[in-house]
């Protein structure tokens, strides 16, 4: 499949905007959430909302580093769109009585660490590192989680919101894979050497050390909520399939690295990977919340209110 025309994509993005006020958050259907579902769904939605929000921040970093004006503008839109998804998911949580007052759901420790990492280092990362990791996260977590949610929740407002969210996400993935292929267009050897130099960057090593336990933690969370493990793995394999569909895509060394990592994650019997990473999850789980730095102010921009005067 040929890469998409990014200029046309930008026009399409601008022409397909929606707002929270396009949805009637008080429409009937909230009662379709069962009492049994409610506590699990509350945690599930909080995780989903945070993934969107963390994705938003990654897009903000990509916008700073994008190699062309068009891509920079596209990523600025994606940054805002991911924020819109998080806002819409919060609005759903509020509709379902899962928020108390103005409270923002508490992120887990692994998310807090990732938030801190993004805040400090994401802007310094080369565009192709985040440009490859973000599609992986989107396709695996977003894709699997959203499908699972729509299969289990009957509320029509939830379906209405996710129809819009999924439309946005399909554009995000289209651009994501195109950018991955752009990276694969030059000599692989040079790219490999450049990548190795980047991998040595301690800031990136810190990022990897935060990303790996986050994935395992999220896997544990969604499985606890009833999502079949295979569905998550199937979604992750989709990354390998789409990302590797062209010669250029396969020549992107970051794709190869993330793909390999995806294989380790989906192979539970790989003790070499899972034992230390699960141990990291446990260790980070023991970090007391008050030992973590205050959340950055971009987190406070989340809102479930479709309209605001302040």
């Amino acid at each position: 499949m040929a890469s998409i025309d990014l200029d046309k994509m930008l026009e399409k993005i601008k022409g397909t905007q929606w707002a929270l006020s396009d949805i009637d958050w008080d429409a009937p259907g909230a009662e379709l959430i069962t009492e049994e579902q409610w506590p699990k769904l509350k945690e599930f939605m909080a995780d989903l909302m945070w993934i969107e929000h963390v994705g938003a921040r990654a897009f903000a970093a990509l916008a700073k580093k994008a190699p062309t004006d068009t891509l920079r503008e596209i990523y600025s839109y994606f940054h805002a769109e991911e924020q819109r998804h998080a806002n819409a998911e919060m609005a759903l949580m509020r509709r379902w009585g899962m928020l108390e007052g103005d409270e923002i759901p508490e992120p887990n420790v692994n998310l807090r660490i990732i938030i801190e990492w993004l805040d400090r280092f994401a802007d310094e990362m080369p565009v192709y590192v985040l440009g490859t990791v973000v599609p992986m996260l989107e396709i695996a977590l977003d894709g699997a989680l959203c499908t699972f949610l729509l299969e289990t929740v009957k509320d029509p407002v939830c379906h209405q919101a996710f129809e819009k969210i999924n439309d946005d996400e399909s554009r995000h993935l289209g651009v994501g894979f195109t950018v991955m292929e752009m990276q694969g267009r030059s000599a692989s050897y040079i790219k490999m050497v450049q990548m190795m130099a980047r991998v040595m960057d301690p800031r990136l090593i810190l990022g990897i050390a935060s990303y790996m336990p986050l994935l395992n933690k999220m896997r544990d969370n969604v499985i606890a909520m009833g999502l079949p493990e295979e569905k998550l793995y199937k979604a992750m394999q989709k990354f390998e399939r789409i990302g590797g569909r062209t010669e250029e895509g396969r020549r992107n060394p970051w794709f190869q690295l993330i793909k390999q990592h995806g294989r380790w994650v989906t192979n539970r019997s790989n003790k070499m990977y899972h034992v230390p990473v699960d141990a990291l999850v446990k260790i980070t789980g023991m970090v007391p919340r008050n030992a973590l730095p205050a959340v950055p102010s971009w987190v406070k921009e989340l809102t479930y209110e479709p309209t605001t005067t302040r």
Partner: peptide, 26 residues
């Protein structure tokens, strides 16, 4: 005061809608 850096999606009857999905009514 508040700085908004989200791209503007459109202007509505009551204010400005930005791409993060919120209508800023003014």
């Amino acid at each position: 005061a508040k700085l908004i850096t989200w791209p503007i999606a459109r202007i509505s009857e009551k204010g400005i809608r930005t791409v993060e999905g919120i209508e800023h009514q003014v």
